[in-house]
Simulated scan of single mutants.
Amino acid sequence: MSDRLSVGDAAPEFTLPDADGNEVSLTDLRGKNVIIYFYPAAMTPGCTKQACDFRDSLDSLQAAGYAVLGISPDKPEKLAKFRDRDGVTFPLLSDTEKAVLLAYGAFGEKTMYGKKVTGVIRSTFVVDADGKIAVAQYNVKATGHVAKLRRDLGL
């Protein structure tokens, strides 16, 4: 388990493949506000709901100056199926090695159905234009999270 990030911390840099195998780097988005959310598994009910919520809010998030990236430990092939099945219109990135999940404190021990397990901790971060963490939210709910984030951001 890695340390959790806090507001003001430098966002850990990363380069990961998207659903088509193209590399996406956080440094390429410098100068923009970036919402990065970590989710356990593509094509599961909660993760689908969360991705569709971000998809449905994408136009207004982009109009307010935010890019969105979703990251999971799924392989690009599964992400492509997820994207195509649910019409996801923002990059879904593959972190099969869990290095970025660990760097953001989004992988470790959590409680699921009353049991302690090790896995992806559903988390959301906003990285500001200078590469600093502006929002760090751990153990977020799949349903209703995007609406709460929009309120937190004043959108």
Rank of each mutant, 00 (worst) to 15 (best):
R150N: 07
A142F: 11
Y104Q: 03
G131Q: 09
D74N: 10
D74C: 00
L149A: 07
S25C: 08
T118N: 10
D86V: 11
V135C: 02
A19R: 11
F14A: 05
T48H: 12
D128V: 07
Y39L: 13
P40G: 06
S57P: 00
F90Y: 11
K148P: 07
L61Q: 06
K98V: 12
Q137A: 06
G46V: 15
G105H: 08
D56R: 02
I121T: 13
D130A: 14
F38W: 04
R151K: 13
Q50C: 09
V100W: 09
L155E: 07
E23H: 03
G70W: 04
F54V: 10
V24M: 04
E77V: 05
G46W: 08
D95M: 03
D3R: 12
Y66H: 09
V117G: 04
A142Y: 13
I133K: 01
V24Y: 03
K148Q: 11
P91C: 03
K78A: 15
T89A: 11
A63Y: 00
Q137D: 14
I35C: 02
Y104D: 01
E23Y: 00
M1G: 10
T15N: 03
I133Y: 00
V34I: 00
S72Q: 12
A41Q: 13
V127I: 08
S6R: 13
Y66M: 11
D130Q: 14
G114H: 02
A10C: 06
S25Y: 01
A10F: 08
F90Q: 09
Y138W: 12
G119C: 14
Y104F: 10
R151C: 00
E109G: 08
A51V: 12
T143G: 06
D56P: 11
D9I: 13
G108E: 14
S123P: 08
F38S: 08
A41M: 10
G105T: 11
S25R: 04
P76F: 01
L149I: 10
Y138P: 02
V126G: 06
L92K: 07
C47E: 03
D56N: 13
T118K: 11
A129G: 00
G46K: 13
F107D: 03
Y113M: 04
F14Y: 07
F14R: 06
K141E: 08
I36C: 04
G8V: 15
A80T: 06
S60L: 04
A103C: 03
L61A: 05
A134Q: 10
M112T: 12
L5P: 11
I35L: 03
V34Q: 01
G21V: 09
R150G: 00
S123D: 12
R30T: 10
G108A: 12
